[in-house]
Structures are given as C-alpha cells and as structure tokens.
Amino acid sequence: MPAILGTFKVVNVSSGGVVHIGDVGVIAPKAASKTYAGSGSFNTGDFPATYNVVSSTNTNDQDINDENMAGL
C-alpha cells in the first residue's frame, strides 16, 4: 500500500544499511567484517578486572575467503 510522505532528511547510512521508500518484497542488506581483539578487549560491566601479563592476538588468517556473499 503506497504511503504519502512529506519532506525527510537522510543524515547517515552506514555500510550495509538500507534506505527504502515505497513498497518492497524483501530487503536483505549484505555486509561482512572481521574484528581482531586481544585478551580482555570486549569486557562489559561496571567494574571489569583483567589481569593480562603477556597477551598477543594472532591475526594470521590462512583461508582466502571467510564469508562468501553474492548479490547486487
């Protein structure tokens, strides 16, 4: 069912984001990313306590493709 829109402003569309106006059957944004983090990097809570004397993050990736995505 069509909608009647007034003026609108798009401030930011992130990578993999979708701005759609009108009728649609399927919206499927595609994005992939890889994050490397060392010991204690993604701690959450009020009082996190980590004790890392020696820490290293292995970023050596042997495979060529991690997540194959196809589409427009």
Results as ranks from 00 to 15, higher is better:
residue 26 V to L: 06
residue 15 S to C: 06
residue 2 P to H: 04
residue 49 A to G: 04
residue 54 V to Q: 10
residue 38 G to F: 07
residue 41 S to M: 08
residue 12 N to H: 08
residue 10 V to M: 10
residue 19 V to K: 02
residue 25 G to P: 04
residue 44 T to Y: 08
residue 63 D to G: 04
residue 67 E to P: 00
residue 10 V to I: 13
residue 3 A to P: 04
residue 16 G to E: 01
residue 31 A to N: 15
residue 60 N to P: 00
residue 71 G to C: 13
residue 60 N to D: 08
residue 49 A to L: 12
residue 63 D to W: 08
residue 58 N to E: 04
residue 56 S to V: 07
residue 11 V to T: 10
residue 57 T to R: 11
residue 45 G to Q: 02
residue 20 H to C: 05
residue 25 G to I: 05
residue 19 V to I: 14
residue 16 G to D: 03
residue 59 T to A: 03
residue 43 N to P: 00
residue 61 D to W: 11
residue 30 K to F: 03
residue 4 I to T: 13
residue 28 A to W: 00
residue 38 G to W: 08
residue 63 D to K: 10
residue 19 V to D: 01
residue 51 Y to A: 10
residue 20 H to Y: 12
residue 4 I to W: 05
residue 5 L to Q: 01
residue 43 N to D: 12
residue 44 T to F: 15
residue 5 L to E: 04
residue 64 I to R: 14
residue 20 H to L: 11
residue 57 T to L: 06
residue 6 G to Y: 06
residue 17 G to Q: 07
residue 65 N to P: 07
residue 24 V to G: 07
residue 11 V to S: 15
residue 70 A to H: 13
residue 69 M to H: 12
residue 56 S to N: 09
residue 70 A to T: 14
residue 53 V to F: 04
residue 38 G to H: 01
residue 45 G to I: 02
residue 40 G to S: 05
residue 41 S to P: 00
residue 7 T to D: 13
residue 51 Y to H: 00
residue 32 A to Y: 03
residue 18 V to D: 00
residue 34 K to C: 04
residue 22 G to P: 03
residue 72 L to N: 09
residue 9 K to W: 03
residue 70 A to C: 08
residue 59 T to F: 12
residue 43 N to C: 06
residue 29 P to D: 08
residue 16 G to K: 15
residue 47 F to V: 12
residue 61 D to Y: 08
residue 9 K to G: 09
residue 69 M to I: 08
residue 18 V to S: 01
residue 14 S to F: 09
residue 64 I to G: 07
residue 62 Q to C: 03
residue 15 S to I: 14
residue 62 Q to G: 05
residue 6 G to N: 06
residue 19 V to E: 00
residue 1 M to T: 05
residue 60 N to L: 09
residue 25 G to Q: 05
residue 21 I to F: 01
residue 72 L to P: 03
residue 13 V to L: 14
residue 16 G to A: 11
residue 36 Y to A: 15
residue 67 E to T: 01
residue 71 G to S: 15
residue 18 V to C: 02
residue 66 D to M: 15
